[in-house]
Simulated scan of single mutants.
Amino acid sequence: MIISEIQQEIIDEFNSFDDWQQRYEYIIELGKSLKGMKAENKTEDKLIQGCQSQVWLDVTKNDDKLFFDADSDAILPKGILALLVKIYSGQPITDILKSDENFIQKIGLQEFLSPTRANGLVAMIKKIKYYAIVYSIKHE
């Protein structure tokens, strides 16, 4: 499935909830389903700066597609990571670079988050795009 279709699926899921409490619970459930990372992979270079909690993001490349592993020591950021991994993992590098993040506004996520958590969300997306840029340059 392409990025925009996955984003639309997430928008539809969020629109099916009556209130933010249900959306919040959904994000937490997503976080619980995130595979996480092995302790030895939670290194300083994989730590995302700008997040209130500790958040790690790792990437591997296979056939011009990026695959993300992510983890956090807090359940809400872990749920947000699960959303982002669902969208971007397994996608072609060029598609990641061309994608937009309008789905965040469409699901109202930034209004729901505290300013520090919203900054963390931006930092997570920037890190995903950063990895895509690095791998597009490395492997041209």
Rank of each mutant, 00 (worst) to 15 (best):
D71F: 10
D69C: 01
I87H: 12
V85L: 09
D71T: 05
A70D: 04
I48F: 10
V55T: 08
P92M: 04
L66D: 05
Y88E: 02
D95M: 09
F67G: 07
V85Y: 08
Q52G: 01
L83G: 05
Q54S: 14
L83M: 15
D64V: 01
K78F: 00
N62G: 00
L66G: 08
V55C: 14
I87Q: 09
Y88S: 05
I80D: 01
Q49L: 14
L76D: 00
C51Q: 07
F68T: 03
I93P: 07
L84T: 02
D69W: 02
Q91H: 01
I87P: 11
I80F: 00
A82C: 03
F68K: 09
G50A: 11
Q49A: 13
K61P: 00
P77W: 06
Y88K: 09
D63V: 01
G50T: 02
P77A: 06
N62K: 15
W56A: 07
Q54I: 00
Q54V: 00
V59N: 10
G79W: 04
Q91A: 14
I48Y: 08
D69R: 13
L81C: 10
D58I: 02
D64M: 12
A82E: 00
S89H: 06
T60V: 14
Q49G: 05
P77L: 10
S53L: 12
I48N: 11
I87L: 12
G50S: 12
A70E: 03
S89Y: 05
I75M: 14
T94E: 14
I93F: 07
D64N: 15
T94V: 12
Q52L: 15
F68H: 08
Y88D: 02
F68W: 09
I87F: 11
K61T: 04
I93W: 11
F67N: 13
Q54L: 15
D58N: 15
Q49H: 09
A82I: 01
G79A: 06
A70Y: 10
I87N: 10
L84F: 08
I87A: 11
L57R: 12
V55H: 12
P77I: 03
Q54F: 12
D73K: 14
A82L: 04
S72C: 06
L84R: 08
L84W: 04
N62V: 05
L83R: 06
D71N: 15
I48G: 10
K78W: 00
D63N: 15
P77Y: 07
V59Q: 13
I93C: 04
D69H: 14
P77G: 07
D58A: 15
D58G: 15
L83H: 06
A74Q: 08
K61S: 12
F67M: 06
Q54E: 12
S89N: 05
W56G: 00
L57V: 14
N62M: 13
Y88L: 07
A82K: 10
D69Y: 11
V55K: 13
L66E: 02
I80T: 02
L83Y: 03
K65H: 12
A70P: 11
G90E: 04
P77C: 09
A82M: 05
K78Q: 03
L66V: 04
D73L: 12
S72A: 13
D71R: 09
I75V: 09
W56Q: 01
W56N: 07
L84P: 08
S89D: 02
D69Q: 15
L57C: 12
S72G: 09
I80S: 06
